[in-house]
Design a binder for these strands. Structure first.
Length: 729
DNA sequence: AGCACGCCGACT
DNA sequence: GTCGGCGTGCTC
């Protein structure tokens, strides 16, 4: 038996691979990156164990090519978290390790931060008498004084001085008065702590008091209505953590990591802040990651993947908008940043805070079972009162492009009273369907089982599922009629209807189409926030975060689409959307009003929301999930398969069923075709597993999945497992 | 996932 | 006679 090193490399391997130690030099430590041969290629991998014995025949072993890191890149806790996640989500560990690393480290580049030049005075420079300086050119004098004042000058500070400071400095260096050195530059943002926080009310105080940075692990769910000041509680807890010398990790949904949020953190906290999100340049991302790992950053604000960032001195983890589906990766390594953050906090023995105005049913169930502390923030900050909510029965109502007369009247009266109105419709484009009035032909995408959405502004048909676009046909391809009509509602159409109904008050539309240009979202929001525009309409994008204090009316244009979704989570999503959008209204002095257009005013979900708000809805929804045997009461996993061939996905899943380990504790549903069977030219099917316990589910998956890859049918499909799926479509 | 090998169709 | 299509199989 030869001593080998285990190395996790990207590829379809369920385990790390065995390698001989490098020919020249000692065995690399666990946690360092190495370059290894794999087939004809060379790969970067992470050492996960060794030296140890191999089960493999010696003649199949190849040596490590070289060792990249002098010291471990990943600490044991981070490695254990990634290993655990790879097993739990049944994803190859090598891929899990590499997705946890910034691109540059993945490619094997050195783990060193950016460098910046800094200038300082030499002894000669310091010794130069003030009067001697006085004889110098004014620019030189200015820089000498600046160097004297601040000790060193960095490029950022130089930019503040202006002019061609660099060439003046070069002169000073030539004269021996100044010298350069290089210093690591992690590109961190300074916390300025120059704004006082609002005093916490008693609810916020009780909640903040429960977050004790040095008292070990606790999971705290902050269930706070919009405007109740969750962020103030986070900031209070973060500041106390920083005072204890601990780092804080804040995880936010992709869309939540806005400059405004960063600004707010900077203005309220001291210490250095690192930002981690997908929009960063490779170098910036590497710097932020290294700063977190080195303990140079005190606060790390990041999206999903930041849950894996190593921390030198972890003290607190915050997950904002914990209900948000974007915290679950939807392809490849399908991990939940929220769930992993809770596990990580537990293992690091630090508190974790989960905040939302509309907590996921998962988190509410955890709270009910005593695993999380549950803190409700029921009062809005300042004098803002909760909005009143009202259903508008659409049945039999005449409508103008989807707007009922009562809704138009409400909008008018709010505008008359000097308020702003916000209309929410979660469907962009002009209309979701284009139909031939002569023969009934529908404009359908030829790659998806879906209809084209008609975008009038662009004069095109657009499939929202595969992004295929087409010019608008002049006449029906089936019968030749020119009477093609738009059926149904989209934001463009509402915009047109509003423009006509309120000619004096031009609306601003905020959706992915209208905000495609860089900065146009901020611009539109600006117009809404300053009151320059008093009619605001849009999608999803409106529901998140931004304060619109002058909005007094919020209208949900069409609640019906969310009531009968195929996904069992559709009602939860609708409720969250309604509450989040409603939360935009009446945040200032004026009371807000929320109206919901529906053809199903008697629907229990709407009735619950209306009379008991989100908590009442959640109670009912949890009872329904319990009765139906669905998450969060039971654990779920999906096995998905897709292929260009129509029959292959179902054939694969049917072949898979008999290989499943017998276990009565795990219920199997399907296989069945996905609700939208064909998408982007691929046919899709799935098989659902439900179990009373996660460990039963895991046992079945572990005993089953390895056999699936060996099925001949597996070669015809792309298949994947999704543990705790966020969408079961 | 890559990247080879290998065994059948249309081309300089 | 080759160039190249993508089915099949392997990587420690």
């Amino acid at each position: 038996m030869t001593d080998i090193i285990r190395v996790a490399v990207a590829g379809p391997f369920t385990e790390a691979l065995d390698y001989l130690p490098p020919a020249n030099g000692p065995a690399p430590a666990v946690g360092v990156r190495v370059r290894v041969p794999l087939g004809r290629r060379e790969r970067v991998g992470i050492v996960t164990a060794g030296p140890t014995a191999s089960d493999l025949a010696a003649d199949r072993l190849r040596p490590i090519i070289d060792v990249i890191d002098p010291t471990p890149l990943l600490d044991p806790a981070t490695m254990a978290l990634i290993e655990w996640a790879a097993r739990y989500y049944h994803h190859p560990p090598g891929e899990a390790y590499l997705t946890a690393l910034p691109t540059r480290l993945r490619r094997g580049e050195p783990a060193t931060p950016g460098q910046s030049t800094a200038w300082h005075l030499t002894d000669a420079g310091r010794a130069a008498q003030p009067d001697a300086r006085a004889r110098r050119a004014p620019r030189q004098r200015q820089l000498l004084e600046a160097l004297q004042r601040s000790g060193t000058l960095t490029p950022v500070q130089l930019a503040g001085i202006g002019g061609d400071a660099r060439s003046v400095l070069r002169r000073l260096v030539e004269q021996g008065l100044a010298a350069t050195d290089t210093a690591p530059d992690y590109g961190l943002l300074p916390g300025r702590a120059d704004q006082p926080g609002a005093a916490l009310n008693d609810e916020q105080q009780a909640c903040a008091a429960a977050i004790r940075p040095t008292a070990g692990h606790a999971a705290i769910l902050i269930d706070g209505v919009t405007g109740s000041g969750k962020t103030e509680v986070y900031l209070d807890a973060i500041a106390r953590s920083l005072e204890c010398g601990r780092q804080v990790l804040v995880i936010v949904p992709e869309i939540g990591l806005t400059p405004q949020l960063v600004q707010r953190f900077q203005s309220r906290l001291s210490g250095r802040i690192a930002i981690l999100h997908s929009g960063l340049a490779d170098g910036e991302r590497l710097n932020a990651w290294l700063a977190a790992r080195a303990g140079v950053a005190d606060v790390v604000i990041g999206t999903r993947s930041a849950v894996f960032v190593p921390l030198a001195r972890p003290g607190l983890i915050v997950i904002d908008e914990e209900h948000d589906a974007s915290l679950k990766q939807q392809e490849g390594f399908r991990y939940s940043a929220r769930d992993l953050a809770v596990l990580r906090a537990y293992r690091s023995d630090v508190p974790v805070v989960l905040g939302s105005a509309t907590p996921s049913l998962e988190s509410l169930a955890n709270a009910a079972q005593g695993r999380y502390q549950h803190h409700a923030l029921t009062r809005r900050a300042g004098h803002a009162r909760p909005p009143s909510m009202q259903l508008l029965d659409m049945r039999g109502q005449p409508t103008r492009e989807g707007l009922s007369q009562p809704l138009i009247d409400r909008v008018q009266s709010h505008l008359d009273a000097g308020g702003q109105a916000l209309l929410f419709l979660n469907r962009r484009g002009f209309a979701p369907t284009l139909i031939c009035h002569e023969c009934g032909w529908l404009a359908e995408c030829d790659r998806c089982d879906a209809r084209y959405t008609y975008h009038r502004g662009r004069g095109r048909l657009h499939c929202h599922h595969c992004n295929r676009e087409q010019r608008l046909p002049h006449h029906c391809p089936s019968c030749g009629s020119v009477d093609l009509r738009a059926l149904g509602l989209g934001t463009e159409r509402i915009e047109a209807a509003l423009t006509e109904a309120f000619p004096q008050t031009p609306p601003v539309r905020i959706d992915r189409d209208s905000t495609r240009r860089r900065g146009s979202f901020e611009q539109a929001m600006q117009r809404a926030q300053t009151g320059e525009t008093r009619l605001i309409l849009g999608t999803q994008m409106l529901a998140k975060g931004h304060h619109l204090p002058a909005v007094t009316l919020v209208a949900i244009v069409d609640a019906d689409q969310g009531l009968f979704g195929a996904d069992f989570r559709a009602p939860e999503r609708l409720a969250q959307q309604v509450i989040q959008v409603a939360g935009r209204a009446g945040r200032a002095e004026r009371p807000g009003e929320v109206v919901i257009q529906t053809h199903h005013p008697e629907h229990p979900l709407l009735q619950q929301l209306l009379h008991g708000g989100y908590p009442a809805f959640a109670r009912t929804a949890l009872a329904e999930r319990e009765a139906a045997g669905l998450p969060p009461m039971r654990a779920m996993a999906l096995i998905r398969a897709e292929a260009t061939d129509r029959h292959a996905p179902l054939a694969f899943l049917r072949a898979a069923v008999p290989l499943a380990p017998a276990d009565d504790a795990v219920e199997r549903l399907g296989p069945f075709p996905a609700p939208m069977e064909r998408r982007a030219g691929r046919h899709r099917a799935q098989l659902m597993l439900l179990a009373d316990s996660r460990s039963n589910l895991q046992a079945v998956l572990s005993g089953w999945l390895p056999a699936l890859g060996r099925l001949p049918e597996a070669r015809q499909v792309r298949w994947s497992v999704d543990v705790d799926p966020a969408e079961s479509l």
